[in-house]
Simulated assay, not measured.
Amino acid sequence: VVSILKGRNAVIFRPSSRGAKCSKKAIDFMREGLKKVGAPENLVQCAEDMDIPTTNLLMQKCDLVVATGGGPMVRAAYSSGTPSYGVGVGNAVAIVAEDADIQQAASMITSSKVFDNATSCSSENSVIIHSSLYKTMIEEFKKNGGYLCTPAEREIMQQTLWVVNDKGKQTINPKVVAQHAQDVARLAGLSIPGDAKMILIEGTLPAHEDIFSQEKLCPVLTLYPYDTFDQALDMYTRITLRCGYGHSVGIHTFKSEYIERMGETLDTSRVTVRQPMAAANGGHAINRMPSTTTLGCGTWGKNSTTENIHYKHFLNITWVNEPVAPREFSEEKIWGEYWKKYGK
């Protein structure tokens, strides 16, 4: 909202039905703040109980749409005829390399995973761990409040986390979304330690065929071992091709060759190095990326940008230009090196 207002804009929020009450409460706080500084309260508005046709009409009439819902919402925004910024599906994956500081990595991943009960699109859903560290990382996760499910409990968790909706499609069970690990376990009929705040699942291979490699929107984290860095990158790519393509990848390593290779070769908008992804992906003092909760995923994720949507995206820029002394150039200066190498 600060980014929007910074560009001298007004904004109308159309929250989802499940988030309507808390969204309205947050917007009321903003309106009180505007009134306190003598600004018009209606710079920030909330459209409650708006049906889909009216929402579509609103998108057609406004100047810009920012769509942060699911795929259908983003497609509707792009189809409205109004300039739009959409976001792709989140399904953040982190890699723990053989040289990682495992205590730091486990602490960061846990803090990111449990933040806001894993509702952030940047919350790690899968962690790909070098096989030499795999068992040790599990123990570190346990020290940070993780509970490791048995194979039998994994099956129970799968039946709890995913259900078939009224359209016959398998989808996340809405009852687990944004719930604490204790509540997710209780819903599954499992008994976990009272201090557990994250549920660990050992994934099955190939990872991209394992349903637990998908976005889960609750504090359930899936773990996969790997042997070579090539395998880790291939596993990441195949997981995100199924869910979360173009969004982000994390890496816990000190090897610059790994980091550079990921930036050069992976189809991802963000490579987040040795940081908790839920905090870092959206911009933070620790990395100085633009701060946002709206993350573009580029054409990989069917979005118009790979950037963090921030204040510059809510500005129209006027270019004032005046004549200056022209640069002198010739074909020889432009093409000379090319001609020397390849001929005219």
Rank of each mutant, 00 (worst) to 15 (best):
K6R: 08
R8F: 08
R8G: 01
R8S: 04
R14V: 14
P15W: 03
P15Y: 08
S16K: 13
K21P: 03
K21G: 04
C22T: 15
S23L: 02
S23Y: 01
S23G: 06
K24S: 14
F29P: 00
M30L: 15
R31K: 11
G33V: 08
V37D: 00
E41R: 14
E41M: 15
A47S: 15
P53H: 10
T54D: 14
T54P: 00
T55Q: 07
Q60H: 07
Q60F: 05
D63G: 14
V65Y: 00
V66P: 01
T68C: 11
G71I: 13
P83A: 09
P83H: 13
S84A: 14
S84D: 01
G86D: 01
V87C: 10
G88R: 09
N91I: 00
A92L: 09
A100M: 04
A100N: 05
A105K: 10
S112P: 05
N117K: 02
T119F: 01
S122P: 05
I128T: 02
K135Y: 14
T136W: 04
I138D: 02
E139N: 13
E140G: 03
F141L: 06
G145S: 15
L148D: 00
C149N: 12
E153P: 03
R154V: 11
R154F: 03
Q158E: 08
Q159A: 15
T160M: 08
T160C: 12
W162L: 10
V164K: 14
N165Y: 12
D166V: 10
K167M: 12
K167R: 07
T171S: 02
H180C: 04
A181V: 06
L187G: 03
P193N: 13
D195R: 13
D195P: 05
A196I: 00
M198G: 02
T204D: 15
A207R: 11
A207F: 11
H208V: 01
F212R: 04
S213C: 10
Q214A: 14
K216S: 11
V220R: 01
L223Q: 07
D227G: 05
D227I: 11
Q231F: 04
A232C: 10
M235A: 12
Y236A: 06
I239T: 03
L241C: 01
L241W: 00
R242Y: 06
R242F: 01
G244Q: 10
G246W: 02
S248Q: 12
E260N: 10
R261W: 05
M262S: 09
G263W: 07
G263V: 06
E264Q: 09
T265K: 13
D267C: 10
T268C: 05
T268A: 10
A279F: 15
A279I: 07
N281T: 13
A285C: 03
I286Y: 07
R288G: 00
T292K: 09
T293K: 02
L295Y: 03
G296C: 06
G298H: 05
N308G: 11
I309P: 00
Y311H: 11
Y311W: 13
Y311S: 06
F314A: 04
F314I: 03
L315N: 09
W319F: 11
P323D: 09
I334M: 09
W339S: 02
W339G: 00
K340M: 14
